[in-house]
Amino acid sequence: MKKRFLDLDKILDNRIRLSMLSILMIEDMVSFKEIKSSLELTDGNLASHVKALEKAEYITIYKSFVGKKPNTEFKITPLGKKAFKEHLKKLESLISQHKK
């Protein structure tokens, strides 16, 4: 079953990464903390997905300081936007094909 869908973007074929990009599609800059609480993830879990998305160049990481606290924020890249839209289209067409 899974084999038929091999043309899906492997990086986005994961609900957490897909959710992260959904948030970044709507909001320009979102902090690590906000994504963590919004998706109810642990630091380590989120960090591994961040790494995957950054490696694919789907997001850019911005590090700064708010007072003395380090603040990490993410922004989606044009490549990331494109990948997200294509992935969405594929999901929709897969589902509509399945219904027929």
């Binding site: 609900r15 959904s22 709507i26 909001e27 969405l88 929709e92």
Partner: peptide
């Protein structure tokens, strides 16, 4: 297949929540 339907539902949920 239900996984993909669920994926889409998740995206929709996030988008709606975020677009208040």
């Amino acid at each position: 297949m239900t996984d993909y339907i669920q994926d889409l539902a998740t995206i929709r949920g996030i988008m709606e929540k975020r677009t208040k």
